[in-house]
């Protein structure tokens, strides 16, 4: 079992999606996260072990390396692809209840803002740490955030803004959400934000990078 766990983990960390993927060059022709996960299940490794001992820790390592600027966006995107390819084998186990997600994370870019790359990176990393992600997309109005929280009781909410002007939309949304759901956990992120702003508008956390968001929600 250890062998499969280690190899799946390495495949995800290195962004090796499947046997046909040319990346990384030093693993060309070798099985990737997709094949190894299928093989591991066939050999009796439990889905839960694959998820909790290989996939989630691997994405944690990826997140740390990205935080430290030792990995960059293209590599992280490949790691996420590898993770998703492995995850495709686990879907039946989630459906049957044999393994469970940690919870639900709802995320969106705030009203007036169409930027999505930061939001998408956070979504990938959080999904990779074992959460169900509900992505509301970009230019999300407060009403849509409210509706999503209502539809997903107990969820954690993430909000993204790339523009200083849409930080205002974020503030309005957070304040309204707080009135309706006072104890809702809210994470905010985006290049122009900082801790002070997050605190002032009533968010629980400013995540300057995806891994900080992952660490926060896993600590709740």
């Amino acid at each position: 079992m250890e062998d499969f766990i280690g190899r799946i983990s390495i495949s995800i960390q290195k962004g090796k999606v499947d046997i046909n993927s040319p990346y990384p060059p030093d693993m060309k022709g070798q099985p990737g996260a997709f094949e190894l996960t299928g093989e591991a299940l066939e050999n009796g490794v439990s889905a839960n072990d694959i998820l909790t001992k290989a996939m989630i820790p691997a994405m944690g390592i990826v997140g740390d390396l990205f935080k430290d600027k030792k990995l960059f966006v293209p590599q992280v995107l490949m790691c996420a692809k590898a993770m998703n390819s492995a995850m495709s084998h686990l879907k039946p186990y989630f459906s049957s209840g044999e393994i469970c997600k940690r919870g639900t994370f709802v995320i969106g870019t705030v009203s007036g803002d169409l930027h999505d790359i930061g939001k998408n990176l956070v979504s990938m990393m959080i999904e990779g740490s074992g959460w169900t992600v509900v992505d509301l997309g970009v230019d999300v109005k407060t009403e849509k955030f409210l509706e999503a929280i209502g539809d997903n009781p107990g969820c954690i909410l993430g909000m993204s803004a790339l523009l200083t002007t849409t930080m205002e939309s974020m503030e309005k949304s957070v304040r309204t959400l707080r009135e309706v759901y006072p104890s809702q956990k809210i994470i905010v992120g985006g290049a122009p934000l900082n801790n002070e702003f997050a605190h002032r508008i009533g968010a629980d956390l400013f995540a300057p990078n995806p891994q900080i968001a992952v660490e926060f929600i896993n600590s709740l």
């Binding site: 962004g15 040319p22 293209p74 995107l77 490949m78 692809k81 790359i117």
Partner: peptide
């Protein structure tokens, strides 16, 4: 598209 382009640098 941003993500597709960044992945394409690798693939």
């Amino acid at each position: 598209g941003y993500e597709q382009a960044l992945i394409s640098l690798i693939l």
